[in-house]
C-alpha cells in the first residue's frame, strides 16, 4: 500500500482557510441558532453568555463570510460547469447507491459539489447584506423597521438552508472516505481520484507537462 501514488488536491493555503472557516463557522452557527431557537439559547454558551453571543455573532459571521468568500474565489475555476456534469447529474441515484459501473466520469468537482459552491456564493452575499442591515446597535437604526424585519427573515431562512447544505456537505465528506484526509493533508491517492473524479487526472497530467 505504501506504493500508492499520491497527488495534490488541496493546497496548504486552501486547507488552512477551509478549517479556519469550519471553526469560525461553528461559532457563528451555534450562536446564530441560539437566537433562532430560544429554548436552545445555551448553544450560544460556546462564547459565554447569551449577551456575549449576540455581541460576537456578527463579528464571527463577517469573518466566516470573508474567509468563505476567499475560498470560493480560489476554487472558482474548479467549479465551472463542464461537459461531464450533465451525464453525471442524471446518474446521481447510482452515485448515492454506489453502483460504480453506472457512474459517468466527472472532473475536479462533481455537479453536487458545484451546486453547493453556488449555494455558498448566494449565502455569503445574503448573510453580509442582511446581517449588516440587522446589526444592532450600529447599523439597524439607519434602516426602516420593516426593512430590518424582512432582513431578519431572510437571514434566518438562509441560515437554515445553509445548515442543511452543510449537513449534506458533512455527510458526503465523511462518506467518501479519503476526502477528509485530502482536505486535511492536501493529497489524495490516484486510485481515489480515479474512482471519484477521474477527469481531474487529465487536468493533472496537463499541469505536469
Amino acid at each position: 500500500m505504501s506504493k500508492q501514488e499520491m497527488i495534490v488536491r488541496h493546497k496548504l493555503f486552501d486547507r488552512l482557510c477551509h478549517w479556519t472557516i469550519v471553526v469560525v463557522g461553528l461559532v457563528t452557527f451555534l450562536t446564530g441558532f441560539s437566537f433562532f431557537y430560544p429554548s436552545f439559547q445555551w448553544l450560544g454558551g460556546i462564547v459565554g453568555t447569551p449577551q456575549l453571543a449576540k455581541v460576537l455573532h456578527p463579528f464571527f459571521g463577517i469573518a466566516m463570510c470573508l474567509l468563505l468568500g476567499l475560498l470560493l474565489i480560489r476554487y472558482y475555476h474548479h467549479n465551472k460547469w463542464d461537459k461531464y456534469d450533465w451525464p453525471w447529474m442524471k446518474a446521481v441515484v447510482w452515485v448515492l447507491l454506489q453502483k460504480e459501473e453506472n457512474i459517468p466520469p466527472v472532473g475536479h468537482y462533481n455537479p453536487g459539489q458545484k451546486m453547493l459552491f453556488r449555494a455558498f456564493v448566494i449565502f455569503v452575499i445574503a448573510f453580509i447584506v442582511t446581517g449588516v442591515i440587522m446589526w444592532q446597535p450600529y447599523f439597524a437604526p439607519m434602516f426602516e423597521a420593516s426593512t430590518v424585519n424582512w432582513a431578519t427573515l431572510i437571514h434566518a431562512a438562509c441560515a437554515i438552508l445553509m445548515l442543511i447544505a452543510i449537513v449534506v456537505h458533512f455527510w458526503m465528506a465523511t462518506w467518501i472516505e479519503g476526502s477528509i484526509t485530502g482536505m486535511l493533508y492536501g493529497k489524495v491517492s490516484k486510485a481515489w481520484a480515479r474512482k471519484h473524479h477521474p477527469a481531474m487526472l487529465d487536468d493533472f497530467k496537463e499541469e505536469e507537462k
Binding site: 500500500m1 500508492q4 448515492l96 486510485a191
Partner: peptide, 16 residues
C-alpha cells in the same frame, strides 16, 4: 449503503 472506500491496490491510473 455502507462505506465508500477506495481499493488502494486496484490498478492505479495510467491514462484514460
Amino acid at each position: 449503503v455502507g462505506r465508500n472506500i477506495v481499493e488502494e491496490d486496484q490498478p492505479g491510473y495510467i491514462d484514460a
